Computed example of a mutant assay.
Amino acid sequence: MLATRRIVLGVSGSIAAYKSAALVRLLIKAEAEVQVILTPSASAFVTPLTLATLAKRPVLQGFIKDEAGGVWHNHVDLGLWADALLIAPASANTLAALAQGLCPNLLTAVYLSARCPTLVAPAMDLDMYQHPATQRNLQQLRHDGVRVLDSPAGELASGLTGPGRMLEPEDIVGVLEQFFADKPLPPR
C-alpha cells in the first residue's frame, strides 16, 4: 500500500527522534520513497548519516544546499513532490511553529508549501504535552486539517508516566497504510 508513495519525514528535536531510524526502515521496507528533513535540534538526537543510509538519499537539514554556489533546498518542490508530510517526532516547539504558521526552518517551510496531507506524531514530556498552549496548538492543527496521531500514555524519558510518547513506528506505518488504502497513486 505504500509502494512508490513519496513521504517527506520531518524529524524534530525530541528524545523520540531515535525512533525515526526504525520508522524510515519500515517505510523503505514497505517500498515508499522517503525524504528525511531534520530540524536543527533533531541532529542532537539522531545523526543525518544514520537516516540517510536507511532512506537511501541525503538528509536535508537547512535551506542552503551549497552556500558557496548559492544553491538552496527548494521547499516548494519538496511540498509538491510528497504524497504525505509526516512529522515524527513532532516536538512542542515544532507543533507551535506549525500552528502559528512560523517558518524558522526547512521543515516548517515545507509544511507551509505542501499540498499533500500532513500527519504529526507528537512527542514530549507529560507536562509539556498537557500544557494548555500545546493543547491549543494541537487543536489548531486539527482545525487546519492536519491529522494528529494521538500520543499514547506510557513511561516517558523523564521517568513520568502519561501521554506524550510518540506513537510506535509500526503503528505510524499502519496509519499511513490505512490512509492510502483507497487513494489511487497520483500521476507521476
Rank of each mutant, 00 (worst) to 15 (best):
H143F: 11
D144V: 08
M128F: 05
I87H: 04
N93K: 04
H143T: 14
G69V: 00
V146I: 12
D127R: 14
L149A: 12
P184S: 13
V175S: 11
L78C: 02
F63K: 02
Y129S: 07
L126S: 01
A92M: 01
L102H: 08
G145E: 06
A121S: 14
R115M: 15
V120H: 03
Q61S: 09
E170V: 00
D83T: 04
V110D: 02
K65D: 09
L98C: 10
A68T: 10
E155Y: 10
L51D: 03
G70H: 14
Q140R: 11
D125I: 06
G159R: 09
R165Y: 08
N93S: 12
A68Y: 15
K56W: 07
G162F: 00
E177L: 07
A84T: 07
S113Q: 09
A133P: 05
A109K: 07
P132A: 13
R142W: 00
D171Q: 15
G79Y: 05
A92L: 01
A157M: 05
L106G: 01
R136T: 11
N93F: 06
L112F: 11
D150M: 15
W81Y: 03
V146G: 00
H143A: 14
H131G: 09
L160I: 07
L102W: 13
K56T: 12
V71K: 13
Q178Y: 03
L98I: 11
A123R: 04
F180C: 04
G164N: 05
S151F: 06
A133W: 00
P169D: 08
G164W: 03
A153K: 07
P122Q: 14
G164Q: 06
S91R: 02
M166G: 00
T118C: 14
V175H: 10
Q130Y: 03
L85H: 00
L156D: 05
L156F: 11
L138H: 09
A133Q: 11
L85I: 12
K183F: 00
